[in-house]
Each structure stands twice: as C-alpha cells, then as structure tokens.
Design a protein around this nucleic acid. Structure first.
Lengths: 342, 342
DNA sequence: TTTAGCACTCGTTAGAAGAGAGTGCTAACA
DNA sequence: TGTTAGCACTCTCTTCTAACGAGTGCTAAA
C-alpha cells in the first residue's frame, strides 16, 4: 500500500511528465507548492516507487518517468476531480447547436471537435450493424443491364450497391421481388437478413417470379454483403506533434495500422459500454504499444451502441481527456435520442 | 541546345539520382557502360549543365542533383521508351478480372494497386458532378419526424441525406412532391438541378401540395447541398518511406494538406484530359513543393471524366509511373465502358 | 578536344573534454 | 526514527577538433 506522500509524489511525477515529456527529477518535484519535504526525501520515496514498478529511469542517473503500471495506477486512483473549462464545454455544445439530422454529419463533426480539443487522434465507430433494422429496399434500374440496389435502415443509414442484371431476368420480376421483400422484411434486423431472406420469402417468391433462383442469388449478393465498418477519423496528423513520435518508423507502423479499418473497428467493438482506458501494452496491437486508447460509448436509437475513441501517446492528458469524452459521448447520445423520441 | 553527350550525362544523372537519392559524382557516371568518356570530361559537361540550370550541387564540392528544370527536361525529352514488366501489367489486369460492378469498388481497388505498384500515394477523384444526371429521387420516412432523401444518378452513384420533417407538413404532400419531381427532373444534370428545380416545377407543385413553400425549402436543402467531392486515396504511408521526408515537418504539412479534400479535389479537377506531370514548384500548393504530381484521366460513361493522380517526391520514377498510369487509366475506362455500352 | 593530375572544399564521423542534471549513499539532525 | 544536507558518482548532451573521403575546378599535357 502506498503512503499519502508516495501518492503525492507519484501524482506529481505523472502530471509533470504528461506536460513536459521530460524525465522528472527530485529537485523539480520539491519545488512544487504542494510538496513540503526536501528533494532527498523525495529521492527515497522515488526509490520505493521504482521498486514497486510504478516509475522508471531512462538511464541510471536520470529523472523518473511513469511506467505503464504507473499510468494505470494514476488512472485508477489518482484522477483528480478535474473540471473542464467553460470554454471547452461550450465549444462542444456549440457544435451540436445547429440542427444536424444526419448521422454521418454528427459523427464527423464530433470526431473533429474531439481531436481539435485534445490534439490527439479521434476515431468514431458507427453503431453495431446487427441492431439496425431494415426499413426499405429499393431497386433503381440504370441501364437495361445494370441497376442499383438501395437499402435504408431505421437509423437513416443508406447502403447501396450496383449490380449487373443477367439477361435472362426480367425487370418486372425484379420489381415484384423487391415488393415482396419489402413487405416481408421491413423491420428485420440486418444481421438476420441473411437467414430470413431465405426462410421466409423463398417459397413466396418462387411462385411469383420466373427465374427466381438466379435473380434472387444476384439480389442477395448485392445486398447481404458484409458491410465494411465505417470509421470517422479526426486529427490524424496530431500524432506527428507528439515528441514520442519523432521516430518515423513508429509513425509509419501506426499509420498503416490505421489504414486497416476492419482491424480498428474490431478493436473498438470489443469494448463494453462505458469508458475504458487501455494503456500501452494493454493494447494488443503491436503498433499501439506506445499509445493509450480511450474508448467510450454513445447510444443511438433504442439500444444501438457505437464507440468513440481517442488515440494518443501513453503520456496522455487522461484527466482532461476523460472528462471531454464523457461530455461528448453524452452530447451525442442526447442528440440522437431527440431523433427517436417520437 | 544540348549536345548528344550532355543529354546522356543528364539522363544518367537523373536516372541515378532517382534510384539512389544521393548526389551523383562524375566518377560514378564514367563507370556506366554507356558512358565512354572520362570523369574529367563529364565534369566539364556537368559545369555546362549546371550553368543551364538543369542540375545543381547540394554544396560546393558535392555531386550533382537534378534541378526542377532538369526533371522537367527529363520528362519532356528524355523518357526512354520504357516497357513495363509483364508482371506489372498482369497485376493490373488481374485486379480488373473479377467482375466489379460498383464504381466505388473499382476505384478503390485501382487506387490500391497504383500505390502498391509505385510505392507512392495514389489519389483518385470521381467524375465531375455536372455531367451526372438525376436518375431517381426517393423519400423514405423513418419516423413521423424524420426521413431520408435519396438521390440516384445515372452513373449508379447514390447520395443520401436525412432531414427533419416540420410538423406542419404532411407525409402525403411530400410523396406527391417527390412524384412530381421525379417525373419532371429525371435526366436533368445534377448541376442544373438547383435552377431547374425552381423554374420547372415550382408552379406545378404549388397547385398540388399544401404548405408547398416550406416543404420545398426543406427538400431542396436536403438534396441540393454541395456534395463534397469523393476522394479515394491509397498508400498514404508510402510517403514516409521516401528519404526526402525524413523531416517530420514536411510530412505533417503534406498530410494536413491531404486532409483538405476539397482543395485536393479542386487541384485534380483543373487538369485537362490526358496525362500531366507537375514537378515541385509547378504545384501551386506550398506543401507539395517537394513533390511531383502526375495526373491522368479516365472516362466514365459517355463523357464524364475523372482523374487519377499519383503523388511522390520530385525524385520520382517518372518513366515507369507514367506507363503504369496509362495502363491503369485505360483499364478503368475500358471497364466502365463495358457497363454503358448497351 | 580529351584526359590525367592535383590542390582545394566541404560534409561526415569519431573521439575527447566539459557541463549539467540527477542519483544513491552517508552522516548529521530534530 | 524519519528527514535532510552534502558529496561522489553516473550518464547524457553539447562542443570542439582532427582526420577522412568524395567530389570539384583548374591546369597542363596528350
């Protein structure tokens, strides 16, 4: 168990290092107002803290730097009740002031704000697909051979896909098919579309349309494709500001990891609702082992949950950032709620 | 006018520098098989070339490096009839082999291939909007208060936008309106939608719907919004490989410029059809003054033109890259043509 | 006209010296 | 017994110097 004094020393070290990115020496700690004891005492305490694995040296005669364990402790026990400046809260609220009624817009803007306010990189992930339900299906013929299938969800999300119409299929049949599908499948969760589409409407369709098999196969392929998760990223270049990313190789590996949208989506999905902080090696991904990832969830509609995330160096302003994410995710949830409350 | 020998020397310098990124000395030139004269002779020629502004030194006793003017000359006059390896052509063709029938997919994949084959960053811009014509308009109600407006173009492009339905507007009216709009506006180029939507249908709508003014205002705002140009970017991290981007500040300014999609779109738009090379300061944008940008056009449908671009250091493999872009833009045009030929 | 030779330039690298920041330990102090 | 002043020691970082080498420009000879 840590003594009061050790807690204080650890707190000062982390706070200091977060702002300066430089190892913190005993003398600079003793100069702090809230510290009343001498640098020698602090050195003793630091030796203990180091033994416990909460801080480390960069070399034998350097100041101390928080270890990952140290950050973890800090996040778990030392977050002071931090108050966001009115300005910060305002700038979030202002952004939501003007009526935005498109999911994409809200999210895009949120990502922008978050990265701007923090100088880290923000990533927002849309709600999980299996909660979304089919609202309407639509086929728009383009030429005699091609058409666009459009799928609208109850969340206002629109998915579309162009496809080829095989010669042996009549446009009329397609139309019939769509009508039937609409009638039967409206309200079905997207993720169940794949099974339902067969079970429920197979027979019905067969009796009504010619060349059912083939037409259906096409339609299905066009619609029930795995939809790549949509990510909204803000402030990608902010990473480059951080001194820990002077090393181009690190930047490179981080950026190429961010290009793999699926992986990231998966990473963010796995979060339970609420706020979670992953520090350094707590992230499974190699490229992120010098980073911390903070995730929070927002609610869309009834019980669809999406994720907002913030990626920065382990030396992150946890205090402020966590508050910000609370406010933002709350604001997003609020906004979305107003869409559905009737 | 340059002598044969000067041409040869310049060519060797550029070729060499493109591969090594190191200043080229007279001795290393004289070692080349195709060079039959001594290093002293070369030094004389180099002095002349430098006087003409085609090459420069990095410091008083260094080897030579092509100047921008030198690259320009090289691109204009010294591109040897380069042959792509069969492998390269194959990998492009292979990618187009499987039937892709969605514009986005083809483009996305093309961008991927191009960046992979070149190790530079590829940017593809969709066709200009004003050539695209409205195919169908659709309104899908979500709740009593919200709906999604969907717009399909003749190219299979789908644009959508959620909007709020003011209480004083009836769903029936909206539907009527959409029907009328569809009837009258199908086939109208998108860019004219804004004017036509007023002129042609204003009167008609007034007589048929209640609360026309307001409903219409909403619909219009929902649809005729300036649509942000869609960019498809591949190999963003490739820039980081290039030795000229060891400087983080450069990387940063380049990346933040790439985040301004509108600017880039504008940049690429302004290209006349055909292939164009912009070297260093020939690019107006500040962040790109150490880069070369090669643009080529592809054709979609009747006469819609889109742009594919490649961004790399001025020290670019012009020869190979230009060939690649020819093949790729051709292949894209080919593919799109097959969609519309009936 | 071409080329061999040579002095000269300048960037790069390695090593040495010194400064500075910070530590651990010891001994004195309250 | 906990705290602190003092001091030797460690390690990094910066600066300076010297040596090296790649490459040039110029001169003179072939």
């Amino acid at each position: 168990m840590l003594t009061e004094r050790q807690l204080l020393v650890l707190q000062v070290i982390v706070d200091e290092f977060i702002h300066t990115a430089q190892p913190v020496g005993s003398r600079s700690i003793s100069k702090k107002d809230e510290v009343t004891f001498s640098s020698a005492t602090i050195r003793n305490e630091m030796a203990d803290l180091e033994e416990m694995g909460l801080i480390e040296k960069t070399h034998s005669s350097s100041g101390r730097v928080p270890s990952e364990k140290g950050y973890r402790f800090y996040v778990d026990h030392l977050l002071s009740p931090f108050r966001l400046s009115k300005q910060e809260v305002r700038s979030i609220q202002d952004a939501f002031r003007d009526q935005m009624l498109e999911f994409e817009r809200v999210v895009q803007k949120s990502a922008g704000i978050l990265s701007e306010l923090t100088n880290y990189t923000s990533i927002i992930l849309g709600p999980e697909v299996f909660d979304t339900k089919l609202k309407q299906l639509q086929i728009v013929p383009l030429t005699s051979q091609t058409a666009v299938a459009i799928l609208v969800t109850n969340t206002g999300h629109v998915e579309h896909r162009a496809f080829n119409i095989p010669v042996e299929i009549e446009a009329v049949d397609l139309e019939k098919m769509v009508n039937i599908l609409n009638e039967r499948l409206s309200g079905v969760p997207l993720i169940k579309l794949h099974e339902n589409i067969f079970r429920e409407v197979g027979d019905l369709l067969k009796t009504h349309t010619q060349n059912y098999e083939k037409a259906f196969k096409y339609l299905q392929a066009a619609l029930v494709d795995e939809q790549p998760a949509k990510l909204y990223v803000g402030g990608k270049t902010n990473i480059l500001i951080q001194p820990e990313f002077k090393d181009l190789e690190k930047v490179r590996s981080l950026y190429s990891m961010m290009e793999k949208e699926n992986e990231i989506a998966h990473l963010l999905r796995s979060t339970h609702p609420g706020l979670k902080v992953r520090i350094g090696h707590e992230n499974e991904v190699d490229a992120m082992q010098d980073c911390s990832l903070i995730t929070a969830s927002y609610v869309l509609g009834d019980d669809q949950v999406g994720t907002i995330a913030l990626l920065g160096p382990t030396r992150m302003e946890y205090n402020r950032v966590i508050q910000l994410m609370h406010v933002l995710s709350g604001q997003m949830t609020e906004t979305f709620k107003s869409w559905y409350q009737k």
